[in-house]
Amino acid sequence: MSFFMEVLLGGLLAGVMYSLVAIGFVLIYKASGVFNFAQGSMVLFAALTFVSLLERGLPFWLSFVISLLSMLLLALLLERLVLRHLVNRPPITLFMATLGLSYVVEGVAQALWGAQVHGLDLGIEDTPLELGGLMLSRFDLFAAGSAGLLVLLLSLLFNKTRIGLSLRAVADDQLAALAVGIRLQRMWVLVWAVAGLVGLVAGLLWGARLGVQFSLSLIVLKALPVLIIGGFTSIGGAIVGGLIVGASEKLAEVYLGPLLSGGIENWFPYVLALLFLLLRPAGLFGERAIERV
């Protein structure tokens, strides 16, 4: 039983990291209706910038700030050069544009900082920690804690500030938001930059785990089933979805994997998400609307 609990908790903690990528995605989808496939590349770009600065001798906080500024710059450029020209286009077009964007961001990241794997040490040892008879990874706990803190900050930003109010208005109804004088384009820049911040944190946590390298951009593929389960527009959904995917993936790997000769983690979350969809086509929290004609 305690082995089961350990696997489950380990999975849940890993799931937190999936949630983190999914949250960046939800922010963008809510504010600008863009299904942002480039979220993974943004994680890669942010993390790669950070380690490269760190390796060049900059202090931790300065590297963090510069990386953050670079994400802000990316958001600005993106709004100017891409989003602005694609307003009122079908969602599928916007999605494909983010596919192109992911190529550009990955290409630029690797052209600037090279393609080799960078180790990243955040100063947290990954020794197991005993909690109530269960062995848990100290690093996973730290990661979960940072993610929790970030989510808290975000909810403060959304619920307690004027900017947050405008953002929620935009997410609710773009036309109405425009009508009351909210500048949509500034909101887009802001929300892409915040998504960049979330990406940076996710990138550091994942990077400390796996090394900062190209494969970081592939975590967008992990975030997708999370989103499907949680719904595209709910941060709460992204968190719960991440936990579900993380936990069930670990459990499946341990209990189902040996039967299927392993390696199932690539497709398992997708099949899980598909089952979810067939049962609840509008996601865990969405309610199915009847199309108006």
């Binding site: 694609l86 192109g100 992911s102 190529y103 550009v104 690797q110």
Partner: peptide, 15 residues
């Protein structure tokens, strides 16, 4: 990398 960037830019440009 250059190829990647050019592909990406072209995709966006075409869209």
């Amino acid at each position: 990398n250059l190829q990647k960037i050019i592909f990406g830019v072209l995709i966006i440009l075409f869209l």
